[in-house]
């Protein structure tokens, strides 16, 4: 089976973000960017499916400006076979919105016929948590979101997926093709080794212009203003446990 995996280039999880002076967006001009952590988990899972001989081919797909190739290369260094770069100059944290991303992925699906899409459950820039569910809806495929365990059946006709639900875990069986979204617990992504990084440079990345896919890229969410959250003022340090208890009692919290 062929597995498609989405890789989004987003602000590094440890980077501090600032708002642009015009308050129209977050300033990403000089911020460290990286593969979205949930996408990295999705890539790892896809590569493991290949190592278990369940998947024959793993294709890493990224949508974004030319630098999006960096995260495709990273996926290739982790073990993906080839990449598809869908190019757009729209900002992927607010202009190119989840519904349009899902439509782009649906268009690629028609052309390349994957048996599964593995996606991160959420990108840590727009924090939407929508694309996997939307893609499954557009394709009319079953979906298994927030996966913490994925097991493909021997005949490769279905997958048993354990999902993180409120208060516990749920296990469902989804017929393939399906869309699966990765949660934190699914695996721990590997570090790409130097030889694999070198090898990844020779792997192929096809480029497609997003505008050429016949998809409506305009979003229905207009960002009016982006601002900083209300800051919280630091309080005081307390000397010891007794002092802490006294403060909490005085505040009526105990």
């Amino acid at each position: 089976m062929r597995v498609f995996v989405g890789v989004k280039r987003a602000v590094d999880y440890a980077a501090k973000v600032r708002i642009q002076a015009d308050k129209k967006a977050v300033d990403i001009s000089n911020v460290k960017m990286a593969i979205n952590p949930f996408c990295e988990i999705a890539v790892e899972e896809a590569v493991r499916l290949k190592e278990k001989k369940v998947a024959e081919e793993v294709v890493a797909v990224s949508i974004g400006p030319k630098q999006a190739q960096e995260v495709i290369r990273q996926a290739l260094a982790m073990g993906a076979d080839r990449g598809i770069h869908v190019t757009t100059d729209m900002r992927v944290d607010q202009e190119l919105q989840p519904l349009a991303v899902a439509k782009i992925m649906a268009a690629l699906t028609g052309e390349h016929d994957p048996s599964a899409w593995l996606l991160g459950k959420q990108a840590i820039d727009d924090d939407s948590n929508q694309v996997a569910q939307m893609l499954a809806g557009l394709l009319d495929w079953p979906q298994a979101t927030f996966a913490s365990e994925v097991e493909v059946s021997e005949d490769k006709k279905s997958a048993t997926v354990t999902r993180e639900i409120d208060g516990g875990l749920q296990t469902i069986e989804v017929p393939l093709p399906a869309v699966i979204s990765a949660d934190l617990r699914l695996n721990e992504p590997r570090y790409a080794t130097l030889p694999n990084i070198m090898k990844a440079k020779k792997k192929k990345i096809d480029t497609v212009d997003a505008a050429s896919l016949g998809v409506d890229l305009a979003g229905q969410i207009e960002v009016l203003e982006v601002s900083e959250p209300a800051t919280r003022e630091a309080g005081s340090k307390v000397e010891d446990v007794d002092a802490l208890l006294a403060k909490l009692k005085a505040d009526g919290l105990l």
Binding site: V11, K16, V17, I19, V26, D93, Q94, I124, D125, D126, D127, V223, L224, E225, V226, S227, E228, P229
Partner: peptide, 8 residues
């Protein structure tokens, strides 16, 4: 957005 570091 951005883990609550920006409010849209």
């Amino acid at each position: 957005m951005y883990a609550g570091n920006a409010i849209a």
